[in-house]
Write a protein that binds this DNA or RNA. Structure first.
Lengths: 118, 118
DNA sequence: GCACTATTTCGCAAAACGGCGAAATAGTAT
DNA sequence: ATACTATTTCGCCGTTTTGCGAAATAGTGC
């Protein structure tokens, strides 16, 4: 019998998931998985306007998924939430339609990590 | 040098994150973490109208985070995405303001799992 | 100070989302 | 078929999110 998770915790989780719930923001995280990047790099990677990318970054930062670091004229962003990359790998393992059904064992370290590259 | 993740994969991930990005839907998943539940139970747990809860369920089902099972008059839902619960635990470990900074080791099996109960 | 570059904030319009009650659907029983 | 229960779908409407260009801000060099 597990106790019900309290509202604050649920809200915090939802904030993170909302921040992650956008294709372009996931593209940004994909870039940051390799190490920090300046906004200029991320603008190139995403392909939207500076203002749009900047807003995506502020959403991720507000949720504390990423953090920034100003150096000179540039601002560098880096991934801060530790569990994101391995969770992504687990999600990718459950491609839509392929029926996973509570298979355990996802979540730790580095999975085979297929599904890369177009 | 990691290759860029392709668009389809990003879209699939975003769909899942969007589905998870709502307080009430996380409450539903919290209930389902204990085992399957009929819609009536979930309506009680969430505290919104049937139509609203039903829509939340359809969002989660469409994203294949949960699956349903009709038995008689009732519909039972169950969790289907294996990595969700452990990811939640990792998220909870990074409470806002507490600075996690790339600490690895989240993601596998069952963490101490604090943050339960109001 | 002025010019220049990198980035964020603002203000707007379009699209997506969330919640509700009413109506529709489906299963069971009589 | 009718009645009853469990659940989903629909239509409306208010709120939030998104994307953009323009303007604002911040850091550097002269």
């Amino acid at each position: 019998m597990k106790l019900r998770t309290n509202l604050q915790v649920l809200r915090r989780r939802a904030e993170i998931f909302k921040a992650l719930g956008h294709e372009d923001r996931l593209r940004i995280l994909d870039e940051l998985a390799d190490g920090e990047r300046c906004v200029c790099d991320l603008v190139k990677a995403v392909g939207s306007s500076w203002s749009t990318v900047s807003r995506h970054l502020s959403v991720l930062k507000e949720a504390e998924v990423i953090a920034d670091d100003k150096r000179g004229l540039q601002v560098f962003y880096r991934l801060v939430l530790p569990c994101v990359p391995s969770f992504m790998d687990c999600l990718d393992a459950s491609r839509k339609g392929e029926s996973v059904e509570m298979r355990r064992g996802c979540g730790s370290g580095s999975q085979p990590s297929s599904a890369r590259a177009s």
